[in-house]
Design a binder for these strands. Structure first.
Length: 448
RNA sequence: GUGGGUAUAGCUCAGUUGGCAGAGCGUCUGGUUGUGGUCCAGAAGGUCGCGGGUUCGAGCCCCGUUACUCACCCCA
């Protein structure tokens, strides 16, 4: 017996909810295109070898197999086995290498697609979800300025959405790695993983973790925490880091990079960007700038947009394609918008006008009226049966259709706004609904 | 993958010591002989997640199982 109930981690929206999601997708697409990003779509599957190339064996990747295959257990070891992509950055890197001869560099693209992760679902965490990525990839080198530009594009895109204020937190891998190396902590990934828990479990527990799991001395733990506690909206973090007295070449390089990003970004998007030296980022292909974004007041939800600089993800022989990009968690955002009622659609259907039937014989004439309205861009449906007008109006009311159209025996027309009850004479060739009723509107709730 | 909680109508949930399966909302019909929402009356809707056990008798107790959910892990 096939399962009919919803599957955990594979969200499906109702029409009214889908309209909110579509609004988010449309807004992102428009913003990305305004900044000259081209759209591409990559296939849903990659080879296992491609996906796990960076050694992320423990990633929860969904494999793909035919039910009829008899050798079903081959996938784990077979690098040519197929699997659903885990994010959009790795497939994009593969796409760039494969099509390098046809692309003009620096290549800027956006990509809005589903991705799959076999994790245990929770609020804001799905197994199938939509990401909206923008990336710029260069041939050989990529000017550092793009690290700034992408942060600004993302800030603009997020600002256009019906969501609470956000904070784009920026850090730099070189800075962190150099610092930890400078104080004698070599397991950078391990340190970052512990530091990443700072907000959740507090500095004392993190200090314990650093000492217990990574063998750090109390002094090293203290220094690591001091770095992680630095958080400024301007470039004053530079002096704070220097005051910690750690000398390292990589640290100096990362510090200079982050200073440049923050200086430019805080000038262009004041209050939305912050240097936050506790930001870690899990994915290990990032090599420089890293970004993470939280909704103010919804920090529990986790990051809703993150990314970074990756200098070595895509290579073709001796040719390198360094990139920088960010990914918006569309599904995570939409699920929060819906569960908190942050925005709602004004109706559940596109229909603006329902043309009623006075009798069943008038259906063809009603279709004619509908066609005249549609020719001017008005979404119209025609009643299927000549039920009592009360029922036909109720049909519109249940769906939020704002207008009901009547054609009288003498050939004249009237249109009724069912919210006000106001009914006026109308001409199918000239009448227009108010602009706000033409298509469903997404209204943001007043921020609490 | 690890640990906790939950599972009864479309939805939210009651269900007493183990004794006839319930409410509100929603849906449908009528009151209303062609203009909805309020109101009134009525109706439909159930394998009590699934399998087993105890018992004269199980929604309730016991065992197992699955799903959902929360936290961990990880991350958008």
């Amino acid at each position: 017996m096939a399962r009919t109930a919803s599957l955990s981690g594979f969200p499906e929206w109702l029409p009214q909810e889908r309209l909110v999601e579509l609004h988010v997708l449309d807004t992102l697409r428009r913003t990305f295109e305004l900044h000259g990003f081209a759209s591409i779509e990559t296939r849903a599957v990659e080879t296992v070898g491609q996906l796990l190339r960076k050694g992320e064996i423990d990633k929860e990747v969904y494999g793909l197999s035919r039910l009829q295959d008899d050798d079903d257990s081959a996938s784990r070891d077979d690098a040519n086995a197929l699997a659903l992509h885990f994010d959009l950055t790795v497939p994009f890197a593969r796409y760039v290498v494969e099509n390098a001869g046809y692309l003009a560099f620096p290549f800027r693209r956006y990509q809005i697609q589903k991705v799959w992760r076999g994790e245990r679902p929770q609020e804001g965490r799905a197994r199938e979800f939509t990401q909206a990525d923008i990336d710029v990839v260069g041939d050989g080198d990529l000017p550092f300025r793009y690290d700034v530009e992408l942060a600004l594009v993302i800030a603009e895109a997020l600002s256009a959405l019906p969501i609470p204020p956000f904070r784009l937190r920026i850090n730099n891998r070189k800075l962190a790695e150099g610092f930890y190396r400078g104080i004698g902590l070599t397991d950078t990934a391990g340190v970052l993983r512990s530091i990443d828990k700072l907000e959740k479990i507090g500095p004392e527990r993190v200090a314990e973790l650093l000492q217990e799991e990574l063998g750090a001395t109390p002094e090293q733990a203290k220094a690591a925490l001091e770095l992680a506690s630095i958080r400024t909206e301007d470039t004053s973090f530079v002096d704070q880091v220097r005051a910690l007295g750690v000398e390292d070449e990589l640290l100096a390089e990362g510090l200079a990079e982050l200073e440049e990003v923050i200086a430019a970004a805080s000038a262009a998007a004041p209050g939305k960007v912050v240097a936050d030296l506790s930001i870690a980022r899990g994915l290990d292909y990032y090599t420089g700038t890293v970004y993470e974004t939280v909704l103010v007041g919804h920090e529990q939800l986790g990051s809703i947009c993150s990314g970074g600089r990756y200098d070595a993800l895509a290579t073709k022989g001796s040719r390198k394609f360094p990139g920088v990009g960010l990914s918006i968690g569309v599904t995570r955002l939409v699920s929060r918008i819906l569960s908190q009622g942050l925005a709602t659609a004004s109706r559940s259907v596109p229909t603006a006008v329902l043309v009623t039937l006075a009798d069943d014989g008038s259906w063809p004439a009603a279709q004619g009226v509908a066609a005249r309205l549609r020719s001017r861009g008005i979404a119209v449906e025609v009643a299927a049966k000549a039920e009592k007008f009360g029922k036909q109006i109720k049909y519109a009311d249940r769906r939020g259709i704002p207008f009901v159209w009547f054609t009288h025996a003498d050939g004249t027309h009237e249109v009724k706004d069912i919210r006000s009850g106001e009914q006026v004479v109308a001409d199918p060739d000239t009448w227009m609904p108010p602009a706000e009723d033409l298509v469903p509107q997404i209204a943001a709730a007043p921020s609490a």
